[in-house]
């Protein structure tokens, strides 16, 4: 004889049956976590209300804990990838006071604290600016010299006027020089140069 299903204690119309769900739930500090696998939850066939009993709570929590761990690994991986587009991993480790190789170990799946994951993810939103900002934070009010970046050189050549403008930009200066006009294919320039 099959057991008669329980009536839904909410609407008192439908039956309470066990249904699979992958619905996200708040878990620990996270407002929304997807369970790592589907969970069977008592659900009303009429109103759709889902209920948590002691067994469901345990099963759902286990799936959410695994889901949270996955989310954390993904966040760490993405953050480190973004951060290392502007600085080497060991440079970040030095600036964040992490032991050498710590970021590699995190990428490989080492468990870490939620505050560190949050910090890395937020720094990775704007890696270059974060590098500067963290440096400023720990400089005790002293002015920090901006980082030197390789100068960019732009060459603009105009065929019509046969002029070339060279612009070199560094964080401190912009140098522009306009080269004297030359007529293309005019041998007299060469002759003039030789005479000089």
């Amino acid at each position: 004889m099959t057991k008669k299903p329980k009536k839904c204690p909410a609407c008192e119309r439908g039956d309470l049956v066990s249904r699979e769900t992958r619905a996200t739930m708040p878990f620990r500090h996270a407002p929304s976590v997807a369970p790592a696998w589907a969970v069977m939850v008592p659900t009303c066939t009429a109103c759709g209300e889902r209920f948590v009993d002691s067994a469901t709570a345990k099963a759902w929590d286990e799936a959410l804990a695994a889901g949270l761990a996955e989310l954390q690994r993904r966040l760490v991986g993405e953050a480190i990838s973004r951060l290392t587009t502007v600085r080497l991993q060991r440079e970040w480790e030095k600036r964040l006071a992490l032991s050498p190789g710590y970021l590699s170990r995190l990428k490989a799946g080492k468990e870490t604290s939620v505050p560190l994951v949050t910090l890395l993810a937020m720094l990775a939103e704007a890696p270059a600016a974060s590098w500067e900002r963290v440096g400023q934070l720990w400089s005790d009010g002293a002015e920090v010299e901006p980082e030197l970046s390789p100068p960019s050189i732009r060459l603009v050549h105009s065929q019509e006027f046969a002029t070339t403008t060279v612009t070199s930009t560094t964080p401190f200066t912009t140098v522009s020089a306009k080269l004297s006009p030359v007529r293309l294919g005019d041998d007299s320039n060469e002759a003039a140069g030789a005479a000089a």
């Binding site: 204690p9 739930m25 407002p31 889902r50 948590v52």
Partner: peptide, 15 residues
């Protein structure tokens, strides 16, 4: 006996 809590209510408590 059993104590049931609505999943959305339980979720809000956790949040």
């Amino acid at each position: 006996g059993e104590v049931l809590v609505g999943a959305s209510r339980a979720g809000r408590m956790v949040a």
